[in-house]
Computed example of a mutant assay.
Amino acid sequence: MSRVLAVDDDRQLLRALRITLRAAGHDVVTAEDGRSALRAAAENHPDVVVLDLGLPDLDGTEVLAGLRPWFPGPVLVLSARSDSRDKVDALDAGADDYVTKPFDMGELLARLRALQRRGTPEPEEPVVRTEHFTVDLAAQQVRVDGGVVRLTPTEWGLFSELVRAPGRLVGQRHLLQAVWGPAYEKETNYLRVYMAQLRRKLEPDPANPRYLRTEPGMGYRFTP
């Protein structure tokens, strides 16, 4: 049995979620606003969070920002916002899935099962090896042919964000906020400049990157 934290300011929907999730065998904790959700998460240690974006005190993306530094489990967003920009923002902020209201409870349960099958992430491997270089996350070092490649703090910050998410698309906004801070979330030119520098230092053929891939208009992907 997993513990689900359900967060929504619609009391009728929250009651329906509680009944449905309990019937499916989950232990359920509920919250009606963002601050209560963060307290409930800290106190109850849920396995998964079901989160509405339109909360009365905090936006759901702000709740995600409060959860993600320490909560490793999946977050499924429920929202009446159907615009693709809202979905991208939520996924960039740390959501794992997005369901638009109104929704079918059977679909919600299926999506929760899928998220839980992925499991809680294992503790990150401190050393990541590729054919051309080795990354020691604990020592914050990259080695090519046995020698240490000097990366600036900003280059390391950007590179390590990608290495910690192997194979996954990491959004531009997430990278900008993580490396430069919230005030820089639109400065995509920073990413282009620093990715070019990383490729020159690490890629066997910087003009045709093998490890540091660009997903145009969306973000970047590390493919070990």
Rank of each mutant, 00 (worst) to 15 (best):
G171F: 15
D10Y: 10
N189C: 05
T130Q: 08
L51W: 00
A196S: 14
V48P: 03
T134K: 12
E131N: 12
A178T: 14
K101I: 08
D136C: 08
A178I: 13
F159S: 00
K87M: 14
Y194V: 08
L67W: 10
L67N: 08
Q197S: 14
T100V: 15
A207E: 11
T154M: 13
L58K: 04
P56F: 11
D97C: 05
K186L: 12
L191G: 01
Y98L: 03
E215K: 10
R113A: 07
L55D: 05
L67H: 07
L109R: 11
A93G: 08
F71C: 05
R18W: 10
R164G: 04
E161Y: 04
R200D: 05
P204A: 02
S82A: 14
L109I: 04
R35V: 05
L212D: 04
A183F: 11
T61P: 11
P72F: 01
E107L: 14
T214R: 15
G94E: 01
L169P: 12
L64V: 03
G119R: 13
L115H: 04
Q141D: 02
R117D: 03
L169Q: 06
R3G: 02
S84A: 10
A165M: 14
D57I: 10
P123H: 02
L67S: 03
L137A: 01
S79T: 14
A40H: 01
R213M: 07
D47V: 02
L112Y: 03
N189G: 08
Y98I: 01
V149D: 00
F222T: 05
L58Q: 04
G167A: 07
G25F: 11
S36F: 10
